[in-house]
Design a protein around this nucleic acid. Structure first.
Lengths: 201, 201
DNA sequence: ACACGAGTGGGTCAAGCGTCCCAGTCCCTT
DNA sequence: AAGGGACTGGGACGCTTGACCCACTCGTGT
């Protein structure tokens, strides 16, 4: 209970909320559970945030920003495009295994946002961030390997997001990493064999 | 408020719960909201079900059973395997557009089940049902077109579930039917060109 | 026709929720 | 050093939740 400027307190509360909700689910993220995790009193919560919804909005913004920059940081050293994509997939799978709760929370957050008209734009933005990351990855791969994509990159980016999304939900259910890896590898092969590699001209 | 045998009341409550939760989300399915939707008193609820969790379990079982039989009923008249798969995808997309809430509820239910150790097997069963449906579809397509699949059918089935799952979540967020159709069509093409059509021997 | 048990309704309970208030305390400025 | 504003803590309010109890009513088997 040291004294904290409001801005730092907001950040601490968001992080605490993220921990609680990743561990026990979105619904478990009550104001009391959050302040207990952060080691504060209940009043500090509403001193830093006008409402629980405001914290939720800030939380989503922060996480989406973080995910976007994380996806951007993936720079495969690059041999062929297949290796690049496979490396990216493996990297994501590692992250998923390391923090399944966080990734599950993202889904719960998206589903929750969809039900609330006021929060719907937040969900949209979340997926726009995913698509942006996918687009960047595809462009990096093309640039790094001197190839171009046969289909429009936006279409491929959406396909990639779809695959990652589906792979995540199915993995969350059965935790079968080997099977998920197989699916992603097959998807990469599809991607490359069918859609990539027209020498850039 | 006519008199109803307990079994019929259970069914009516499950249907009412399904309506409420499809419309307003899993969290909105309180005992009071459900009995209001069913036009009963609160006591009738706990006469038919020992607890809200018991209703939830029965609801999931019923829906999974329904989805499994629905997916089985898909019999494409069949020209090539691509047409079969495309027809199946289009059929699912129609269903999704007709009842987005129900499909979103399935996700919410799965995510909720994953958090509760007692309900985790239910989520597993839900996805086993999906995989079974996908397997059946792939086998039907192979049989109807006289071809075989190059990769193990279980792998392909999981890939199919992954694709449908991902397509559903992305569509739920942006409701962009055209883009989702494009993704699914591309996926079908991938599926067929790369993985199908080895004449059955 | 009559009793018995299945089914019903309303009122109630304790717990947990988000939110709010206010008296107190610390730090920073001047 | 003294004032004022930023920050804290505990307690409380009003509401909703799942669960429950008990007095009642109706259909049915005898």
């Amino acid at each position: 209970m040291p004294r904290l400027p409001a801005e730092a307190r907001r950040a601490a509360l968001v992080e605490a909320a993220l921990r609680v909700m990743s561990r026990d689910g979105l619904a478990a993220g009550t104001t009391r559970a959050i302040v207990a995790e952060a080691g504060m009193s209940l009043a500090s919560f509403h001193y830093a945030f006008a409402s629980r919804d405001e914290l939720l909005r800030e939380l989503v913004h922060r996480v989406v920003g973080h995910e976007l920059s994380a996806a951007t940081a993936d720079l495969p050293p690059g041999a062929g495009p297949a290796d690049c994509l496979r490396a990216a997939a493996a990297g994501y799978l590692d992250h998923l295994e390391r923090e399944p709760g966080a990734e599950q929370l993202m889904f719960e957050l998206a589903m929750h946002s969809l039900r609330d008209p006021a929060l719907r734009p937040v969900a949209r933005q979340q997926y726009r961030a995913y698509t942006a990351a996918a687009t960047r990855l595809l462009e990096q791969v093309a640039a790094a390997t001197g190839t171009a994509w046969r289909r429009p990159v936006p279409d491929l980016a959406r396909l990639l997001v779809t695959l990652i999304d589906g792979a995540t939900t199915t993995w969350l259910v059965d935790r079968d990493t080997a099977a998920t890896r197989t699916v992603l590898d097959a998807a990469v092969e599809l991607f490359v064999a069918q859609h990539a590699e027209l020498p850039a001209g």
